[in-house]
Simulated scan of single mutants.
Amino acid sequence: MEYTLAIDNTPDTVEGGTGILLLHPSTGATDRLDTDFLSTDTDAMLVISTRTTAREVEQKLEYYEVDESKATILDTLSVERGYTRRQSDGVKYVSAPDDLEGIVESTRTFLENHEGKLRISFDSVTELIYYADEERALSAVADILDLLEEYDAVGMFHLAQGVHDAETVERFREEFDGVIELTEDGTISSEF
């Protein structure tokens, strides 16, 4: 299955199973790229958030006019922070950002229970490393990339370039089929 990529300086389409690493400056405005990725050519989307709560993700989707009826949000922060949380069709929770098994299983459940063109956004791998550590984060990302392939889905994973050393960035780069780089001035380049 082919998926349209509506992002400047990237291929027009990518094959199902493609994992994309979005490298951005730590201050980079990634919301526009993320929502363009999610809303184009999509039957259902999963937004895994280790950086913001479900409420903040909902506000972002609404602001960028993404069809929220197609979205499932996996909130990894609210339980740990003690916020009120109610599971619903559109919002799922795991206990904490370092509950990597929960994140991978929730991803599998989403992919099993939806049909058609499926997209996943993981915002952010940087936070995952912060909460879990690099080795465990790398392992969880690899597991999710395997699921993308198994279910013919595509995913975009955020990594703040300035926060990590070159070796860490390179280790994650090697896992992905494509890399999109966003610079401080908003220039986009890609390698697929």
Rank of each mutant, 00 (worst) to 15 (best):
L74A: 04
F172I: 08
S78F: 06
A153F: 04
I20K: 09
I7C: 08
N113Y: 04
D133P: 00
L5P: 12
A166E: 15
L147V: 12
D36N: 10
D41S: 01
T76Y: 07
D36M: 04
E56M: 01
S39N: 14
D99P: 02
V57L: 02
I188D: 00
E101H: 02
L138R: 13
D143R: 05
E65M: 03
Y151Q: 05
R119V: 14
T10K: 06
S69P: 04
E150P: 00
L145W: 02
F37Q: 07
L38S: 14
Y131Q: 03
L22K: 05
N9W: 04
E105T: 09
S121D: 15
I73K: 10
T53S: 15
K70F: 09
S26P: 11
G162M: 14
E167G: 05
T84N: 11
S88I: 12
G102M: 03
Y93T: 11
H158W: 00
G16F: 00
V94I: 11
V163S: 12
V141T: 14
S139Y: 03
G90V: 08
I144F: 00
A132Q: 08
S95T: 13
V179W: 05
L33V: 12
D89G: 07
Y93C: 03
E105C: 01
A137P: 06
E101Q: 12
A71I: 05
Q59N: 15
H24P: 00
K92R: 13
D12H: 11
R86K: 06
D67R: 00
T42H: 04
L33H: 04
G82L: 02
L118G: 08
D152P: 01
D98V: 05
F176H: 15
A6K: 08
D12T: 07
S26Q: 05
Q59F: 02
E112I: 14
Y130D: 15
A132L: 04
P97C: 12
D123F: 02
E174G: 11
R136H: 04
S49K: 14
T183I: 05
E181P: 03
D185G: 09
S78C: 06
D123H: 08
D89K: 06
G116K: 07
D31S: 05
V169N: 06
L21Y: 12
S69N: 13
E135A: 11
F172G: 12
T40L: 01
T30R: 03
M1W: 00
T42V: 09
D31L: 01
L148C: 12
Y63K: 10
Y131E: 12
D12R: 08
D133W: 00
G178M: 07
F37S: 10
M45T: 09
G17I: 01
E170K: 08
I48K: 11
